[in-house]
Amino acid sequence: MRALVIDDSRAMRRIVSGILIGLGYEVRDAGHGREGLDVLDEGWKPHLLCVDWNMPVMDGLQFVSAVRSNPAWRSVTIMMVTSESEHTQIVRALAAGAHEYVIKPFTADAIRDKLALLGLLPEEVPAGVPVPLRSSEQEVAL
């Protein structure tokens, strides 16, 4: 499975990408919404988009709206990555067409659980087997 991680923070891109690669994803990343659209325009078809909210050039809301208005990208699942203080934004992002959200700081398990709900785990990791990622239980502090 393929995922596109869109975040203006390089550290955040690395963290999210690391978790997804650990789960078996093929990952590309982008620094803001416009760059994200460019990757999609190339014809690379991800199953999952992990999108930050506050970004320069094109923010998360604009990006989600752009993706949702294009029928070619209808089947992609969008997960917002946001911070705890942005309650109104979370509901607004979901209303714009996002499917799920995770709140920073999050654990690898939190992401895995949400992907399991969405049916987006590349291979079913059975209960009792740890995620193949050393920091799976560490809180990602950002």
């Binding site: 199953h47 949702r68 209808r74 089947s75 699942t77 979901l94 499917h99 969405l118 987006l120």
Partner: peptide, 19 residues
Amino acid sequence: GALPPLPVPSPTRENEVPL
């Protein structure tokens, strides 16, 4: 609720999520 319904699991692993 603000979240869309979860996809219905299908054996074909189609990842279509309803809008």
